[in-house]
Amino acid sequence: MQNVILIIHLILALCLIGIVLLQRSEGGGLGMGGGGGVMSGRAAATALGKLTWLFAIAFIVTSITLTILAAARSDSSSVVDRITDQPPAAEEPAPAEPASDDLLPPAPVSNAPVVPQAAE
């Protein structure tokens, strides 16, 4: 059941993308470039506009249906609860001891300026 609705949902998403791309651009953002846009008093009632609304409503309905189905199939516990219920992982072995040369402190570095010696 959930797979069928998911396939319908994906087909509706592709149809919605296609139908929006087929519509005529009105120039500015939010329909500012001409008549019949989002911000105007009267929207254009074209076939593409009606089809866009139909696909959008069907897309929202399938989204809500998938959400309800997923919530019904999920456990009542939280993901955080599942993480804390697991036993701790086995401790990793300690790293090998470094060689005796690695234990010596680094050679001191002098920050004094280098002064050339006069030639005799």
Rank of each mutant, 00 (worst) to 15 (best):
R73D: 13
S40Y: 00
P116T: 08
L30I: 05
M1I: 12
G31M: 02
S25G: 14
S78M: 10
H9S: 04
G37P: 05
L69W: 05
A96W: 05
R24S: 12
P113Q: 07
T67N: 12
V115R: 07
L104S: 13
L14I: 05
P108H: 08
V114W: 10
E97G: 11
M39S: 04
M39R: 01
P105Q: 09
A70W: 06
A72L: 11
I7F: 09
P113M: 07
P93K: 06
A112G: 08
P88K: 12
D102E: 15
A119C: 08
A56W: 10
D75I: 08
G37S: 02
P106T: 04
V114G: 01
L104T: 11
I7K: 14
S100V: 15
S77F: 07
P98I: 04
L21I: 12
I7Q: 15
A72F: 08
V38E: 02
I11W: 00
G33T: 04
G41P: 07
A44G: 05
A99C: 03
V20C: 03
G49W: 00
Q86N: 12
I19Y: 00
G29N: 08
L69Y: 05
P87R: 14
A43M: 03
I17M: 09
V114C: 03
S77V: 14
P106S: 04
S74V: 07
I60N: 07
D101N: 09
L30E: 04
